[in-house]
Amino acid sequence: MNDHAPHADHQHEHPTWKQYKWVALWLTVITVFEVWIYYTPFSKSPMYAPLLLVLSATKFIIVVMFYMHLKYDHKLFRALFTGPLIIAISTLLALFALFSHQAIPQ
């Protein structure tokens, strides 16, 4: 491996301390909300699963953007992450669709 003393590239902006704390707060709030809603009658609603997916996608995105500072980092990293992520999610959805469809009725 490359063992040279690193020299981080500081041309780009960084998320700040304040942002870190806000992100943590939002993550907590969303998680608490998710768990709370799990115990409400809304969890029987057809809108429950989509809502939860949106909420967890939101958490996913803010962690990636701020904690993994992709928002502030070189665009190359964004490509290295989103490209594979898109392929992974598409594969997951395709597999899910393929298996939830029974070709031969049992």
Binding site: D9, F77, L80, L85, A88, I89, T91
Partner: peptide
Amino acid sequence: LDNRKVAIWAFIGSECMLFA
């Protein structure tokens, strides 16, 4: 950019597929 950081992002990309 540092080589190691490029490599870790490629690794994370690969891990996406593993967990998918």
